[in-house]
Nucleic acid binder design. Structure first.
Length: 496
RNA sequence: GGCGCGUUCGUCUAGAGGCCCAGGACACCGCCCUCUCAAGGCGGAGAUCAAGGGUUCGAAUCCCUUACGCGCUACCA
């Protein structure tokens, strides 16, 4: 029987743990939760799961929020914005977990465990050696009253473990995967409260999902195996569990879980690399979900309107950097000149040598249409436009001599250009092109050769935006100056 | 080892019994356009739908088995 998806009072959450920088997988999970909330007119909540004091990374929470900000994924409750279900940092809710755990202790749904780490380690090694079932052996679950008293009197460290039912089965109706069943005898007595007084993920997540009235838990598939624990805990606490949906994982090119070792995995790195926020979001929406059989470029509102868990895939997906790059190019081409200029300006200011700065926005505005369909990453703009800002070109004069030409013909070509450009009435690309085409024919050079020489002289490069538009933007003085210098250098090269 | 999930072109995917000897996109190749580089247009190659058994008049779609991949198996999340 297919479970009906709740659509009223939708409250979903993104629950990052600040133990590292936010990566692609985390953010895709956040995105899907956000889309689901927006589609159903519900709330999207951010809750920081900072229960692991040893692995806390300073600044990680800020990085997560910054990534969400960058991608324009707004949260309705959580850090910075607050909300009626706070606090939204689990480290500030310790008393809540402790109280619930004590309650479980009283009702014998939980027990104190005094096992040392050494004992647990030995136990695990023995289990591995004997290839028997892994998991806690319930040593402390079976302690007598006296033994327990003795342990308490001794005053050593202890943890609180959940007493999992020894028989029966736990069933989840996953909204994406369907029914999944686990035999309870295979679950072990997991820890609720660690010896430092902090809850484990399981304790905290179950408590807060209930207290914050989370309606759907949407998380990566790696959490599926811990779902029966959560269901059991909800039941022990007398709570109605939320609905679950386990999202397919995002894998690296080697098909293993995406991680640092796959290189660019941190979301903010993509911003630095020149990806547009809109493109990354669009791309991520398409890993694990599709609108139909052909639509790929979609506005956020289109996706929100059409998002549904029924169209979420079950199979894990490999992160395709090439396709993301293509999509980024598509987005760049859709940008207005103003918008592109605004996005490229800070990149140039950062990437160009300081002596060529500052970049004049008006000048940039004239350059931008020439590069718009030639860059895939915003950062490509630096290499593509540097000659517009460069004060002195630097190139091997031999490159002025195009294929099939010799020193003399290159010299004549440059002289002809010099004459034409000096005499041109309007320094605009159309008349320039006409005049120069004629000049090429007169010299008996192909356009490829003639314009090739001029291109190197005017830009120092072999591949540039269209030559005539480029020269128009550079302006007569600068182009003539560069040609003069090219002639000079070509002459010097001969005498060498 | 145990448990769980998954399996359609290299990659992202469409497909919910006949519309599919499988459609779209990225990447790749060719042609066109062309002053270079792109963009764009057109075309091509690329999947015996993991394999094998069923069910059915008919299966990528339903069932079973196997294989492979991945995840979990911490006082990490």
């Amino acid at each position: 029987m297919q479970k009906i998806i709740r659509t009223d009072n939708v409250r979903v959450r993104f629950a990052p743990s600040p133990t590292g920088l936010p990566h692609i997988g985390n953010i895709r999970t956040a995105l899907f939760n956000w889309l689901f909330a927006r589609h159903h007119g519900g709330k999207f909540i951010v809750r920081v799961e900072d229960t692991d004091q040893d692995r806390l990374v300073p600044g990680a929470t800020d990085a997560v929020l910054e990534a969400l900000d960058w991608l324009d994924i707004q949260w309705d409750e959580g850090p910075r914005v607050g909300g009626p279900y706070g606090p939204y940092f689990q480290s500030q809710r310790l008393d809540i977990y402790q109280k619930l755990a004590d309650d479980l202790l009283d009702r014998e749904w939980a027990y104190r465990c005094y096992c040392s780490e050494a004992r647990l380690k030995d136990m695990r090694e023995a289990q591995a050696r004997e290839k028997s079932q892994t998991g806690y052996d319930r040593h402390c679950r079976n302690l007598s009253k006296d033994e327990r008293r003795a342990q308490e009197a001794y005053g050593g460290k202890s943890v609180i473990r959940f007493a999992v039912p020894l028989s029966g089965a736990t069933v989840v109706e996953d909204l994406i995967r369907g029914q999944v069943v686990w035999q309870n005898e295979l679950l072990d007595d997991f820890i609720l409260i660690k010896s430092d007084g902090f809850p484990t993920y399981h304790m905290a997540v179950v408590t807060d999902d209930h207290l914050m009235e989370i309606s759907h838990v949407m998380r990566a598939e790696e959490w599926l195996p811990s779902t029966p624990r959560h269901l059991q805990l909800h039941q022990a606490l007398g709570q109605e569990p939320p609905q679950f949906a386990h999202l397919p994982m995002i894998l690296g090119p080697d098909r293993s879980k995406l991680s640092k070792r796959h290189g660019a995995t941190f979301v903010l790195d993509y911003r630095d690399q020149g990806f547009m926020q809109e493109a990354l979001v669009n791309f991520l929406e398409l890993v694990g979900w599709s609108l139909d059989d052909h639509t790929e470029i979609m506005t956020p509102s289109t996706v929100i309107e059409n998002f549904s868990l029924e169209r979420v895939n079950k199979a894990a997906a490999i992160f395709d950097y090439e396709k993301l790059t293509w999509m980024n190019g598509m987005y760049i081409r859709q940008l207005s000149e103003e918008d592109l200029a605004d996005r490229v300006l800070p990149i140039l200011e950062k990437g160009l040598p300081s002596e060529w700065l500052p970049v004049d926005r008006g000048y940039l505005l004239r350059i931008v249409p020439l590069i718009r369909e030639r860059i895939k990453l915003l950062t490509d703009a630096t290499d593509m436009t540097d000659f517009f800002f460069q004060t002195d070109l630097d190139f091997d004069p031999k490159r002025l001599i195009q294929k099939g030409m010799d020193h003399q013909s290159a010299m004549s070509a440059l002289a002809a250009c010099q004459a034409e450009l000096t005499n041109a009435e309007a320094f605009e690309h159309e008349p320039l092109e006409q005049a120069l085409r004629a000049a090429a024919t007169e010299l008996g050079l192909t356009h490829r050769q003639f314009f090739g020489t001029l291109r190197v002289a005017a830009t120092g490069k072999d591949a540039t935006p269209p030559l005539f538009e480029t020269m128009e933007v550079l302006g007569r003085d600068r182009v003539l100056d560069r040609i003069r210098q090219a002639i000079q250098r070509l002459g010097d090269a001969e005498t060498d």
